[in-house]
Design a protein around this nucleic acid. Structure first.
Lengths: 189, 189
DNA sequence: CAGAACATGTAACCGGTTACATGATTTT
DNA sequence: AAAATCATGTAACCGGTTACATGTTCTG
């Protein structure tokens, strides 16, 4: 369902587009929100046409097909957006990693958490740079700006969590050094 | 690959467990990080045993099987955690929704963004309450605490983004009311 | 003894990824 | 002319979800 909505949304936001265009945009400002491969996009676009949510005009330079939303397509998108609550199924490999890092012995955990924090800090800076080059969101292309802003905030949250958790683990290790009460996993083998 | 790592991690964090135990924990503190169904967990546990990453003892009350990490399992987990950079494939239905909301006409977008913000604010409070009942992370079960903390920060980021974006859209709508330069999608039908 | 919770699994399906196949147009 | 890019698609596979099937132990 979600890929369908993403395509409808991109056609609404960016106007008539080819599958190739859409695929490229999935690697752009939308990349930290949703992604899809060409092999998934082309069949889904065909289905959109089958379901009368989009029309296709087959006239571009090299077999290029331009897809455009129908009124039903717009309505369907709006229904989804205004409709039922979003069930948030989270499946984040990097979150899983984050969650598991504190399992390691303290020095390793701290080292890796600092590395992750720095990595996300770098990505935050990158996104902020891109966001800085965009015009303030008064113009036409506000969508990309908002999406980038969301990305920045989410990555900053992870960056801060990693730093804070590293600090905590260090503090606990320092306190526990007296009592030796925090054995690392793998020690009891 | 990731489910495998998640299972190894949970066995490392929580000690020997049954598939049923693990399934319950996927709905607990790990729920905003990763999730899996029983129908996926049981076969994967069998594979872990096949691959000598875990051992199974078949002695619980009602056919209950207890899985336990082997040294190879611990090593494999640690390798994954310390190994290559996490490629972060994000696929968040709620983020997609967030990204598309600004496509709607300003009043609707603002209304829905405020609703989302309130919804996430509620979830943040919920998680903070749960986190408050846990002992400070000096004790044994620090992992759950860190995971909750990450969840809180991520949801707070979305909450703040939604509020800030609603504010921005309102401000732009107020400024654009003079020039009428921001038509809503669907207006040009 | 009935119903809830415990406990493990299988089968069919769906969404997504990887790899492959094909050809047109533009650039060097 | 060769290489890069544009452009669309198919096939095989994999991970995950939903629904189903089966039996056990505890609780009221």
């Amino acid at each position: 369902m979600s890929l369908r909505v993403a395509l409808l949304g991109m056609l609404a936001a960016g106007g008539p587009s080819s599958g190739y265009d859409l695929a490229k945009r999935f690697d752009g400002s939308l990349s930290h929100v949703w992604s899809a491969r060409q092999s998934q996009i082309y069949p889904e676009l065909s289905k959109l046409v089958d379901d009368r949510l989009a029309t296709v005009t087959d006239d571009g330079p090299r077999g290029r097909k331009i897809y455009e939303l129908t009124e039903a397509g717009r309505a369907g998108l709006e229904d989804w957006l205004t409709g039922t609550e979003p069930r948030q199924r989270i499946r984040s490999e990097s979150n899983l990693r984050m969650f598991l890092l504190p399992l390691l012995d303290s020095p390793t955990a701290v080292r890796l958490l600092r590395r992750e924090s720095a990595l996300y800090a770098g990505q935050v800076r990158e996104l902020e740079d891109i966001r800085g080059t965009l015009p303030e969101p008064h113009e036409e292309r506000r969508n990309g700006w908002y999406a980038l802003d969301l990305g920045v905030r989410q990555m900053a949250a992870i960056r801060d969590w990693a730093a804070a958790t590293a600090d905590r683990i260090e503090a606990i290790a320092a306190a526990g050094a007296d009592t030796g009460s925090q054995p690392a996993p793998g020690d009891e083998g």
